[in-house]
């Protein structure tokens, strides 16, 4: 098998093997290819960002890594286990070490903040309620919501809901967390808090973080490595500094939010004049 287009060459200092390796990933939704022969690596202990325009398949990639959907071709390995070849029991064992922060937070609406954070502990451990209480309060303290433990999800602001979900996602001390658009729809202060939290948690808990986002500036500020996705393939990848220096027109357009460039604003359509029936009739 030819060496994939990995970002880490043999000349790099020796790193532990990547936590996640994706090789030849191909995935279709209907007739549309979301991914075509995509290769990427997620290094342990790093914050890796997957960025790209809306509809580029960023969230789909997280769902593929989490084993919620299966690729049509290719291989996705997490910590040495091929996710889509695992049986349900093995997949669930693996997922106890993975975590995901959903775009909406996905808090259970019938449970309080405390019970939401306690949920994975109650499901997967036999710890006493007294110990669970201590652990939950520690997790809530880490995200600044210890005082909000008795609130219901409907009583939280968007930023608080996301922080509560973050506390839940670290409840089982996972080896990795996948963040799906963690900054979307947040005010600047909440965004700043989330950025700091993600980086701090990653470093303090020795996690591996994957952030899917199209908030360029915020994501680049905490990412160690960035993959840029568009139209089913990886357009470019590298450290934020390296991408900033990239001469690719696509990268430049995306990183600097330029309206004109290789990425078209319009969805493919017939000629405008033809659609409006204004095409010139041939003169008699």
């Amino acid at each position: 098998m030819p060496m994939p287009n990995t970002p880490f060459s043999r000349s790099d200092p020796p790193d532990p093997p990547p936590l996640i390796t994706v090789r030849g990933l191909t995935f279709y939704r209907g007739d549309r290819a979301i991914f075509r022969d995509v290769d990427l690596d997620i290094q342990r202990g790093k914050v890796t960002a997957i960025m790209g325009p809306s509809g580029a398949g960023k969230t789909t990639l997280l769902r593929l890594i989490g084993g919620q959907i299966r690729p049509h071709a290719g291989r996705i390995e997490v910590d040495g286990a091929c996710v889509h070849e695992l049986g349900r029991r093995e997949l669930y064992q693996l997922r106890k070490r993975m975590s995901m922060l959903f775009q909406s937070g996905a808090l259970f609406t019938d449970l309080s903040v405390f019970d939401n954070v306690a949920f994975p502990l109650r499901e997967h451990t036999r710890l006493s309620e007294a110990l669970i209480r201590i652990l939950v309060l520690m997790k809530l303290e880490a995200v600044g919501l210890r005082g909000a433990r008795d609130l219901m999800p409907s009583e939280l602001s968007g930023g608080m809901a996301r922080r509560a979900a973050l506390a839940r996602s670290i409840a089982l001390d996972p080896m990795m967390i996948m963040y799906d658009e963690p900054f979307s729809g947040q005010d600047p202060i909440t965004m700043g808090v989330l950025i700091k939290l993600i980086r701090t948690l990653n470093d303090a808990l020795g996690l591996t973080s994957i952030i899917v986002s199209h908030d360029v500036k915020e994501t680049a500020s905490i990412a160690d490595y960035i993959y840029l996705l568009s139209e089913g393939s990886i357009v470019d990848h590298g450290s934020p500094q390296a991408l900033e220096r990239s001469r690719s027109a696509w990268v430049e357009q995306f990183l600097h939010a330029l309206p004109d460039g290789p990425m078209s604003f319009h969805y493919p359509a017939a000629a405008y004049a033809q659609d409006l029936s204004l095409a010139q009739e041939p003169s008699p």
Binding site: R63, G66, M98, M100, F102, S104, A106, E123, R168
Partner: peptide, 18 residues
């Protein structure tokens, strides 16, 4: 719709049983 079932799956909790 609010991804609660997906979140449950990602927490290794089977929505069929829960």
């Amino acid at each position: 719709a609010t991804e609660q079932l997906s979140a449950m799956q990602m927490m290794a909790v089977d929505p069929f049983a829960r």
